[in-house]
Amino acid sequence: MTYPYPPVGAYALDTRTGRVGLVMGHEGPYVQMRPYGGGREWDAEPGDVRHATPAERLNAATAYTNARSRGEVP
């Protein structure tokens, strides 16, 4: 099945929230995403989701690493 949005396993940007996440699935009319580095999934509208650029992925990875070094992420 072909989707008009990133497939499961791809890093994507939810343009509505500005969050980068890993696409975990497609359930009903939503794209299920999990934050970079793990955490609680959220549902995004398919029209608000696009592939994350390398710079967006790097920003998400850096933010996660910095939060982890401050002890904000288990």
Rank of each mutant, 00 (worst) to 15 (best):
Y36K: 04
Y3D: 08
N66H: 10
Y5C: 02
L13A: 09
G28E: 06
P4E: 08
R19K: 10
E45D: 13
G37F: 01
G47H: 07
T17S: 05
P4V: 09
G18F: 03
V73Y: 01
A12I: 13
A55S: 14
P6A: 03
G47I: 10
E72V: 12
G18K: 08
R50K: 10
A44W: 05
E41W: 12
V49P: 00
G37A: 04
G25V: 13
P54G: 13
L13S: 12
R40T: 15
T2R: 00
E45T: 14
E41K: 13
G71T: 09
L22Y: 01
A55N: 15
G37Q: 02
V73C: 02
P6N: 04
T2D: 00
V73D: 01
R57S: 04
A12Q: 05
V49K: 00
G39L: 01
Q32M: 07
Y64W: 13
R50Y: 06
A61K: 12
R40E: 14
G28F: 02
D43V: 11
R34P: 02
T2P: 00
T2K: 00
Y5S: 08
G47W: 06
Y30S: 10
G9C: 09
L13M: 11
Y64S: 14
N66Q: 12
Y30H: 12
E72G: 06
L58N: 15
T15M: 02
T53E: 07
G18V: 10
N59T: 15
Y5N: 04
E72F: 06
R19H: 04
V31D: 00
E45N: 12
G25L: 09
P6T: 08
L58P: 07
R19D: 06
D43W: 07
R16G: 06
H51W: 03
G38K: 05
G71C: 04
H51G: 07
T65G: 06
A52N: 01
Y64M: 11
M33H: 04
L22R: 06
P4K: 05
H26I: 12
T17D: 02
L58D: 15
H26D: 08
D14C: 06
G25Q: 09
G21N: 04
L58G: 14
L13V: 15
P74L: 10
T62C: 05
T53F: 06
L58T: 15
T2G: 00
P7F: 03
Y5V: 09
V20L: 02
G25T: 15
E72A: 09
G25R: 09
V31L: 00
D48H: 07
L58R: 15
V23S: 04
E56C: 13
A55G: 13
V23A: 03
P74C: 11
V31Y: 00
G71R: 03
G71V: 12
V73K: 03
A63K: 08
L22A: 03
M33A: 06
R57P: 00
R68S: 14
Y36S: 02
T17A: 00
E56S: 13
P4D: 07
G39I: 07
A61S: 14
A55M: 13
R57W: 03
D48G: 05
R19P: 01
Y3S: 10
T62R: 09
P46C: 11
E27P: 05
T2N: 00
T2F: 00
G37H: 01
V73S: 04
